[in-house]
Design a protein around this nucleic acid. Structure first.
Length: 492
RNA sequence: GCCCCCGUCGUCUAGCGGCCUAGGACGUCGCCCUCUCACGGCGGUAACGCCGGUUCAAAUCCGGUCGGGGGUACCA
């Protein structure tokens, strides 16, 4: 296939404010997959111009997240690169220089209007177009000098061209804006601080970004950026105007964007909850993209191979936690038992199921037990829930209150447990097969109970819950002593 | 208000003029498997917003309409 575009350079440029959002992950994933598919470069840049809201904590969370996901970048924090620095806070001179050149060439001009003046003129004229009206567009040099001498504040505005601006959006096709609906906009604050409108394209220009894939919320600012690019090229800062592709929103409940208030929005929370990166990424890829008509489980490598930005669906997508969990489960089940064990270990320690470091005996027990739980967990955190009974100290072992009341503290439950105790006392050797024989004989054949009725009380008495790994194997691993002790203590 | 984007099952999607009495997945319902829970298997449920037009033929193309979203900042 020769669908490869040479020299692709894409980027993701998050602001380190707050906890990273799944929308950010989806955008990063699509950019990353696009770069990898075409053998291009994935740039990671930090937009920390907002000093008030940017935090190191957020920055570290984003970097940590990217590493966890395995979306490695070719240029950016930690790895550097030829177009650094990769933090906007360290690129101020570049913005000041760009601004000076734009002003010098007449692509931008100082505007002395206040919001109130603009608004008053708009009302008076009855214009339907909101925003700036271009009042200061053609001030002569003398007037500007006079205003400056008077100490009047001004902001630099980009002079929008006449006519219309059209681009071929990579996900939406041709989009056109009449520039009379796109006012001349501010490039910096009156105090000189550059604004996003300037900084983002300037960085993309210097970093020679060829394709900008970003959220559809930036769609309407694209004509302004394309106009800026033309100016930037004229003053020798930009070599090219990138192509744009606007990715659909990730929605939460209702029809609103998934907001920081929604618990599903926090990307790092998925790691805490035991999701695997393969699963989260696969699910997020499905929000707007499909690898094939009848398939939705795939690896990152397969996505890279198949990904084409033109196949991205422009519709907004609703985040569905249930499906996300199902996709994640499919990926967990693709892993080997050893792999699941390794990945579950940190959670077992975190949740107090295992000590840190793990004793050799516990390690061995864990390895013996994992085959019975690997296929029944959907998230890594569920391993601990299923295996806690094996590792818990005798003193801490307790039965689930509801399960106990229903299955153990009943006449039938007591009778079953007594019979199980008597039978297992004579189980020799202590193996799952032998345990099975003894319990079947004593409870099903002798007592005439249905299997599900017979084993429920035993399960609760020995594992503490109604839900556990397979009973015979669980008891074998638990050992004769502990099994009998637990049955004993469930009696009376 | 004005500008722009979007519109297929509850949800995510496949579909790019005939293969569609619209396919898959999640969910949901029923059944099977079964020592619990999962897994797995089988089956059911459910959608082209609406109206025109183009065409022998439209979910697919065009127009309109309705609905949803975004923008309209010295936020990003």
């Amino acid at each position: 296939m020769s669908d490869k575009i040479p020299g692709v350079r894409v980027r993701m440029a998050p602001s380190p404010t707050g906890s990273p959002h799944v929308g950010l992950v989806r955008t990063a994933l699509f950019n990353w997959a696009f770069a990898r598919h075409h053998g291009g470069t994935f740039v990671f840049r930090i937009e920390d111009t907002d000093k008030e809201r940017s935090t190191d904590e957020s920055l570290n969370a984003i970097i940590d997240l990217m590493h966890w996901l395995g979306l490695e970048w070719d240029e950016g924090p930690e790895v550097g690169g030829p177009h650094g620095p990769y933090f906007q806070s360290q690129r101020s001179e570049l913005y000041a220089d760009a601004l000076a050149r734009l002003l010098e060439a007449g692509h931008a001009y100082p505007c002395f209007c206040t919001n109130e003046e603009v608004e008053a003129r708009r009302k008076e004229s009855g214009s339907k177009v909101m925003g700036y009206d271009g009042f200061c567009r053609n001030l002569d040099a003398e007037t500007i000098a006079t205003y400056n001498a008077e100490g009047r504040a001004s902001v630099p505005r980009l002079r929008m061209p006449d006519g219309s601006i059209t681009w071929n959006d990579l996900v939406r096709g041709e989009v056109t804006f009449e520039t009379r609906f796109v006012p001349d906009y501010a490039l910096a604050r009156a105090n000189g601080d550059p604004l996003y409108t300037l900084v983002n394209p300037v960085d993309d220009a210097y970093m020679e970004i060829t394709h900008v894939l970003r959220g559809e919320d930036l769609l309407s600012s694209t004509p302004r950026q394309i106009a800026l690019y033309a100016a930037l090229r004229d003053v020798g800062i930009a070599k090219l105007t990138p192509e744009f592709g606007h990715l659909p929103y990730v929605l939460g409940e209702g029809n609103k964007k998934l907001s920081k208030r929604d618990p599903e929005a926090h990307a790092l929370a998925y790691r805490e909850q035991g999701f695997v990166p393969e699963g989260l990424l696969n699910y997020l890829a499905l929000l707007g993209w499909a690898i094939a008509a009848d398939r939705d489980i795939f690896s990152l490598e397969e996505m890279v191979e198949a990904f084409d930005i033109k196949d991205v669906n422009p519709n907004p997508a609703r985040f569905d936690l249930k499906k996300c969990e199902a996709i994640n489960a499919a990926h967990v089940h693709r892993l080997s038992v050893e792999e699941i064990t390794d990945r579950a270990l940190p959670f077992l320690k975190r949740d107090g199921v295992l000590t840190d470091p793990v004793s050799p005996a516990d390690q061995q027990l864990l390895e013996l037990a994992m085959p019975f739980v690997a296929e029944r967990v959907n998230k890594l955190t569920e391993v601990g829930e299923l295996l806690r009974f094996l590792f818990i100290a005798d003193a801490d072992f307790a039965l689930d209150a509801a399960d106990r009341a229903k299955l153990v503290d009943t006449d039938e439950g007591q009778a079953v447990i007594q019979a199980a105790y008597d039978a297992l006392l004579r189980a020799e050797p202590w193996s799952a097969a032998r345990i099975s024989d003894m319990l079947q004989h004593a409870l099903v054949e002798e007592m005439g109970l249905k299997p599900r009725v017979a084993f429920g009380p035993v399960r609760v008495a020995t594992t503490g819950k109604r839900v556990s790994p397979p009973l015979y194997e669980s008891l074998e691993l638990l050992g004769r002593e502990r099994t009998l002790a637990r049955l004993q203590s469930a009696l009376g």
